[in-house]
Design a protein around this nucleic acid. Structure first.
Length: 106
DNA sequence: TAGTTGACGACGG
DNA sequence: TCCGTCGCCAACT
């Protein structure tokens, strides 16, 4: 049984350290998905499937919370990030570049 | 089976 | 530098 590509996405997203964030593009590139949209699709699925994946730590390449609408509550993603000490202003991660995490750090 | 959609990103004007 | 357009590829209807 071959793992679906999104299973790999889940595994990688789970590796994102507490208080750090990552981008769709980085994940897509690391897993050779060919398209960042695949990551968003995968996370969208995992959310509906009730998977324990910290999807709130994944944002687009500008640090914008483009996925907040896919959460149960619009403000949930921001609240979760705040709980980790990540500041969010106008749906965008503050000091995004400093908090950015790369899979290569594993 | 074919067309549409999507939590994005790169590129050109 | 900012905005609009196109490409990406798998899942869903």
């Amino acid at each position: 049984m071959k793992k679906h590509y999104y299973e790999q996405v889940y595994e990688l997203v789970k590796e994102i350290p507490f208080g750090r964030v990552c981008t769709y593009g980085i994940i897509a590139d690391y897993l050779s998905l060919g398209s960042a949209r695949m990551v968003g699709y995968a996370l969208n699925k995992c959310n509906s499937l009730g998977k324990e994946v910290p999807a709130h730590r994944v944002v687009n390449r500008q640090g914008y919370l483009s996925g907040r609408n896919a959460f149960d509550a619009p403000g949930m993603m921001k609240a979760l990030l705040n709980a980790e000490g990540i500041k969010v202003k106008k749906d965008t991660v503050v000091d995004f570049k400093k908090l950015l995490w790369y899979p290569e750090e594993l």
